[in-house]
Amino acid sequence: MRLKELESYLQDVETFEEPKVLLEQYPTSPHIAAHMLYTMQTQYSAVEGKLVADLGCGCGVLCAGAAMLGAGACVGFDIDEDALSMCQSNCTDLELDNIHLVQADVTHLHTCPGRWHKAFDTVIMNPPFGTKKNWGIDMIFLRTALDMATESVYSLHKTSTRQHIKKKAKEWNVSMEVIAELRFDLPAMYKFHKHKSVDIEVDFIRFSFPSK
């Protein structure tokens, strides 16, 4: 599938009607999602035939894209029932049948991963950035993703946190590579946003494990 096609199919994914501030529910744009998944597949063969997890899947744009690129199965986790039902209806509309959803608190998976530990080949996510009341949640998502993946983790993080992430990656003995620097044009979705839209700089990062 070509990049343009993927992006065009992902345009059909509907997003939150009323995003929840506390959960930092901002959707990954079809443009960014398509580029992420296309790069993961063409550069790193991390999607086709893989078992993929999407942490904080929201409306499911990354799940949908992974399924379109031939993931063996994609398991989407989210805490929010409304997001999951939106994700379900999106996947139904797109005729995607290998997406499995679980309602769970990703920050709890961290303390007791159980059978999820190293269950997935690839983990992909657009985690909450950890602003306002959620300080540090981005790193909990990342730690959890690294526990669940055997091959690689692909994630979005604010560029301003890059040094901190580098330090943590070293501490956790994982390699990290900034694949792309993006600009998120967040529309003023929340009442506390004073301007029409806010531009933030975001890194698309690949984490992998050093070969033994």
Binding site: C87, Q88, C91, I99, H100, V102, R115, W116, A119
Partner: peptide, 18 residues
């Protein structure tokens, strides 16, 4: 008409839930 395409729980997922 496409209700057969769902993001439902299959036994693959069940096998990993604790």
């Amino acid at each position: 008409m496409l209700l057969s395409f769902r993001t439902t729980m299959r036994l693959l997922t069940h096998n990993m839930l604790t």
